[in-house]
């Protein structure tokens, strides 16, 4: 069962596709698939390894995933040690002609540790925070990396692909301006998040992440840490608890109830909630829910 192609902004010259066969792109996350589809239009098919409301940090290495990659032309991974499992899927695919794209290559990385990272820091990523797709402006560097691979496979389409990417980024930029203006009244607002997924988002939209429910990345909340967070939330400084929808919300919901700080539970991946079918819907949902909570309204659940 093929996933229907995402609709694209610009009309694509169908007739100009040299080989006639669409380029098969498999991505670690659906967000990259959305960008690849925008660039390639009808000349690419996309499929994501992570599907639905799932954690990108952990994936079940089912043999059926390897078979998806067996026939693919391009694999797009998140990199920065987030989807280390992708290499096992690529190896398991046994596909010798696969072009592997690390979408993080052109990203300006945040939170690159200046100390030696080991497991005492939890699941900390030595090369920087890997949740860079949560800044819509990173669609440009991600798209450039994907574009390079697609243009290698179909050099004749390079100009069309570039025009498609430019158009997509322009549309996303325009939408980003709207999302930014929505959060502008709350500039500098202090927020705590469940996991450290938000530095790129926070920088783009001017909020400040002051703490995480996870005491260290990947480590579930401990009672002492929750007690410390309760103290922090009771000061009234923190305006919202922002959480990724794939986590268990029992602890953050309890914190929200006991302190009155609103809980904002949002999807962080395209396709992880009904109606979140592309990057526009994803950022619309995140910024909308967060702005409502910061404005003191009822948070959307």
């Amino acid at each position: 069962m093929k996933k229907p192609l995402l609709t694209v902004l610009l009309a694509v010259g169908l007739a100009s596709a040299a080989s006639g066969e669409p380029i098969r792109v498999v991505t670690s996350i659906p967000d990259f698939g959305a960008i690849a589809a925008a660039i390639g239009g009808a000349d690419v098919t996309t499929e994501s390894i992570v599907k639905g409301n799932r954690d990108v940090h952990a994936v079940e290495l089912l043999p059926s995933l390897m078979m998806k990659v067996r026939k693919a032309d391009v694999y797009v991974k998140v990199g920065l040690d987030l989807d280390l499992w992708a290499q096992q899927i690529i190896d398991g695919s046994r596909n010798p002609r696969l072009l592997v794209v690390d979408a993080s290559e052109r990203i300006v990385k945040l939170e690159v540790p200046d100390f030696k990272v080991d497991a005492s820091h939890g699941d900390l990523h030595a090369h920087g925070n890997p949740h860079y797709w949560l800044d819509p402006a990173n669609a440009r560097p991600i798209g450039e990396a994907i574009l390079a691979a697609l243009a290698t496979i179909e050099p004749g389409m390079a100009t069309t692909f570039r025009a498609n990417l430019d158009g997509y980024v322009a549309r996303l930029d325009a939408a980003t301006a709207v999302w930014q203006s929505r959060l502008a009244p709350h500039a500098g607002a202090e927020v705590i998040s469940f996991h450290s997924s938000w530095p790129y988002f926070a920088r783009r939209f001017g909020i400040t992440i002051v703490e995480h429910l996870e005491p260290k990345p990947g480590v579930p909340p401990t009672p002492t840490h929750v007690a410390a967070l309760t103290e922090l939330l009771r000061t009234g400084r923190v305006k919202a608890i922002l959480m990724e929808s794939y986590f268990d919300d029992r602890v953050p919901a309890m914190l929200s109830r006991t302190t009155g700080v609103p809980l904002v539970k949002v999807p962080v991946l395209v396709g992880s909630a009904p109606g979140i079918d592309d990057q526009f819907a994803l950022f619309e949902e995140i910024t909308g829910s967060l702005a409502r909570a910061l404005a003191g309204g009822r948070p959307a659940d």
Partner: peptide, 10 residues
């Protein structure tokens, strides 16, 4: 266990 952890194969 010390060191990098790989995902489990099916």
């Amino acid at each position: 266990s010390l060191g990098p952890h790989r995902a489990h194969w099916f």
